[in-house]
């Protein structure tokens, strides 16, 4: 294997720095989320007082649909970019952005409902604490993602997006898929598991 003499520097290929960087970042973010997820699981069913998850949480169907489908649309956008179809790219990318924004709106509405109608604050009980911090951390990542999406969308609409930006686009789409995956975890833990645990 180590027949160094035959090695040809021209064959020397290394992974793309930007993609590798975003994957590393995703690894770090996963560690961050893990701690919050564990905290949520740990305090599940341990709140000393209500409101409890089963009383106040509703399944976030529309938000989830929006977020999941945005993973598909961003994939379409990427394919358009690779195929050189710029209007197609802008269209799919725009839809992705809109879905992301809708998700944020949905979360905002949910929180408004919980805070003003169900009286669940971060300081109410350990459920409130872990719920807002976990879902909030995810929402924060969606906000960052939407800002990145908007940036690309604007430059694409102004015709400033070129083929040498594919790596940027790809990196952002990795990030977006990651945010989506985290939502699967949050959904399972918060909206499937904890509503079934009796206080």
């Amino acid at each position: 294997m180590n027949s160094a003499t035959t090695e040809n520097p021209a064959d020397w290929k290394l992974p793309s720095a930007r993609k590798f960087g975003i994957l590393t970042l995703i690894l770090a973010e996963s560690a961050l989320f893990t701690i919050f997820v564990v905290a949520y699981l740990f305090y599940m069913g341990k709140s000393l007082n209500g409101p409890y998850p089963s009383e106040v949480l509703e399944f976030p169907l529309l938000g989830t649909l929006a977020l999941f489908s945005s993973s598909g649309t961003i994939f379409m956008a990427e394919r358009c970019l690779l195929a050189g179809n710029k209007p197609g790219f802008s269209l799919w990318w725009g839809i992705t952005t809109a879905l992301g924004i809708y998700f944020l709106y949905f979360t905002g509405a949910e929180w408004h409902h919980l805070i003003f109608e169900k009286n669940l604050l971060i300081s109410t009980n350990t459920f409130g604490t872990t719920f807002y911090s976990l879902v909030g951390l995810h929402a924060f990542h969606v906000i960052v993602g939407v800002l990145l999406l908007l940036g690309i969308l604007i430059s694409s609409l102004r015709g400033r997006l070129h083929s040498d930006h594919t790596e940027h686009v790809e990196a952002i789409s990795y990030y977006w898929h990651f945010v989506d995956c985290i939502w699967i975890v949050v959904l399972t833990v918060v909206y499937f598991l904890s509503v079934r645990v009796q206080p």
Partner: peptide
């Protein structure tokens, strides 16, 4: 928040 507030569970 109540992460480490032992009075509140």
């Amino acid at each position: 928040a109540k992460f480490f507030d032992t009075q509140a569970g």
